[in-house]
Amino acid sequence: MSIDLKTVQRIAHLSRLKIPDTELQQVQGELNKILAWVEQLNEVNVTGIEPLANVNDEALRGRDDVINDGGKAADILANAPAKTADFFTVPKVVE
């Protein structure tokens, strides 16, 4: 399977990544090389084999449903590129 320039632009947008137009073709070429290389996985018969998402066989643990952290607004905002009072601020979203 290989991808066209339009697909590169679509996944760049899905990824919220600005790729300069001058680099699109190079990116397309590299992605296609990698996609061609991973095609070899089709040689493996995986019928009846369950996907392995995590090697940790233990079930995820629950914990008591109690508040165990908090009151750290200043810490959380300390690295914000832009803030107003106790809020992160972003470019205007609603006209």
Partner: peptide, 10 residues
């Protein structure tokens, strides 16, 4: 597919 082959490797 990759996750299934991952299990084969394990």
């Amino acid at each position: 597919k990759a996750q299934r082959v991952r299990r084969c490797i394990r």
